[in-house]
Design a protein around this nucleic acid. Structure first.
Length: 396
DNA sequence: CTACATGATTCTTC
DNA sequence: GAAGAATCATGTAG
């Protein structure tokens, strides 16, 4: 504090105007700022930070201009405020450094920060394949990175120039009054401390910007989009045609994901949600179930008919077709029962079997609707899959 | 603006 | 580790 007062006196009139860091560098009146500056500064920083945060919606130029302004302001303010700020604790600086490194902002170029993006995506569990959004994210991150490095470099340069400037001044003054080398040294160290504190603010702001960018781009929850109608239809078709065992295998999930242009984990989510919501309120889904059951029943009939005939074509509505029959439901006893009951003939080909199995559920549902087999839990195949006899049904 | 739908996340249980 | 359950946060229809 004392030191700062002295340096301010010693440097009276010194400014960085003319350096690469320009504008706003002229020192305001030295007094009357101690109390108010904290708030005012916060306000300013808050404002500008907010503007920085909107970087995603802005051009690089605008964003950079704002960053530059922001950091200029900090240079100015830090000198005004003096040394009242305690020296920043090293751990904090280390934390910031580590974070910037991890985010790919500082340190070696990481191919546009893809590693950080991927890590972030993994951390939030969000899919890593929305390449469009991620490339957008990388672009923004690299903007931040660029601005950060530009400013960092500027500060280092400004710090050196400023130090030289001060030393020259002191040397000049040493003609009129005695100035010990130790005093000069102390001044220099104060200047360096000030500049490191500015750097820290730069790092902090960059961290915040990255965090916000991250949350904006990678927090899947925020980015929730309803699936396309087509995708929902495909998923529903599968769900309702496998009501007795709506647990698609990994292969089935992959296939569904491919068909719906979503990720496997999204398929898992969808089925998780669907199962629980269906179970919670079967009545509400009855209509939907009917719809899809009827829909798939037609396909089922066709497929079965086709399967009985020598010419074989897989139903397009059975994602497991052709996947060597590895579905879970192959293990379900009721399915085998169903198959045996269903035919009278023998459906033995694995693919045909898979088709028929998935369609049996659909048929069951139709039956349940038309034959009064729909008493909530008790009547739903999902919860009492073993009590159903489909042998009376003709599929043709 | 509100209520409901829906995709995602988190925590718990097995 | 997968599934269930609860919850969050956003999208959307009215």
């Amino acid at each position: 504090m004392d030191e700062q007062a002295r340096i301010m006196q010693a440097l009276g009139g010194v400014s960085l105007a003319g350096h690469s860091v320009q504008g706003g560098m002229a020192l305001p009146p030295p007094h009357g700022h101690d109390g108010s500056d904290g708030d005012g500064r916060k306000q300013d920083i808050g404002d500008i930070l907010h503007q920085i945060m909107t970087i995603t919606d802005q051009s690089l130029d605008e964003a950079q201009a704002k960053l530059v302004h922001f950091f200029n302001l900090n240079v100015n303010i830090v000198f005004i405020r003096g040394a009242q700020e305690e020296d920043s604790p090293d751990p904090q600086l280390m934390r910031l450094d580590n974070m910037l490194l991890a985010e790919g902002v500082s340190g070696p170029e990481k191919g546009g920060g893809s590693a950080a993006a991927a890590a972030a995506a993994a951390a939030t569990g969000s899919p890593t394949d929305n390449s469009i959004e991620h490339s957008d994210y990388r672009a923004k991150l690299s903007q931040i990175r660029q601005i950060y490095h530009t400013e960092l470099e500027k500060y280092e340069q400004a710090c050196n120039e400023f130090t030289t400037h001060v030393m020259n001044l002191l040397r000049e003054q040493s003609r009129t009054r005695p100035i010990s080398p130790k005093e000069i040294e102390r001044m220099v160290s104060i200047i360096h401390r000030k500049f490191s504190s500015i750097q820290m603010q730069l790092k902090q702001s960059t961290c915040e910007a990255v965090m916000i960018l991250r949350s904006r781009f990678l927090d899947a929850r925020r980015k929730r989009r309803n699936f396309s109608k087509q995708a929902t239809e495909i998923l529903n078709e599968y769900f309702y045609s496998h009501l007795s065992n709506p647990y698609p295998s990994e292969e089935a999930k992959e296939e569904l994901a491919k068909k719906c242009s979503i990720t496997v984990s999204q398929v898992s989510n969808w089925f998780g949600n669907k199962r629980i919501r269906y179970k919670k309120n079967i009545g509400k889904f009855q209509e939907e179930a009917n719809l899809y059951a009827a829909k798939t029943a037609v396909t089922a009939a066709h497929a079965v008919a086709a399967a009985v005939r020598p010419s074989q074509t897989n139903s397009p509505t059975t994602p497991n077709s052709g996947s060597s029959g590895s579905f879970n439901l192959l293990n379900s006893g009721d399915m085998f029962m169903s198959m045996q009951n269903l035919n009278g003939d023998s459906y033995q080909g694995a693919q045909v079997g898979a088709n028929v199995q998935s369609q049996v559920d659909t048929l069951r549902h139709v039956i349940s609707q038309t034959a009064g087999y729909n008493d909530a839990l008790g009547g739903n195949p999902m919860y009492s899959p073993h009590g159903l006899n489909v042998s009376t049904v003709s599929v043709k």
